[in-house]
């Protein structure tokens, strides 16, 4: 089993697309959506930590697949 060719170009941490900076453009867009929505969630619930927020977002059925995967990754950091 080998991952030859993997180092040829920098891959997204979450998929096999080329990374722009650690993530591909799709997962980066997911990350941007997460960051844009966070202040709205904080306002809505009063107090809400970033990790708690990510945890809720990734369990929400309306959250899109790429945003969910990005939330999962960010939550693990």
């Amino acid at each position: 089993m080998s991952v030859e060719g993997e180092a040829k170009s920098v891959k997204c941490l979450l998929c096999s697309r080329d990374a722009v900076s650690e993530l591909c453009r799709y997962h980066l867009q997911g990350k941007e959506s997460l960051e844009t929505a966070y202040p709205h969630w904080v306002k809505a619930y009063g107090i809400l930590g970033w990790k708690d927020y990510l945890d809720r977002v990734k369990r929400n059925v309306q959250t899109g697949q790429w945003a969910k995967e990005t939330a999962e990754m960010l939550a693990g950091r």
Binding site: Y26, Q29, G30, E32, S33, L34, T36, A37, H40, W41, A44, Y45, V57, N60, Q62, T63, G64, Q65, W66, A67
Partner: peptide, 8 residues
């Protein structure tokens, strides 16, 4: 759709 994050 895939990058959507809902707001409550």
């Amino acid at each position: 759709i895939r990058t959507f994050v809902p707001v409550p």
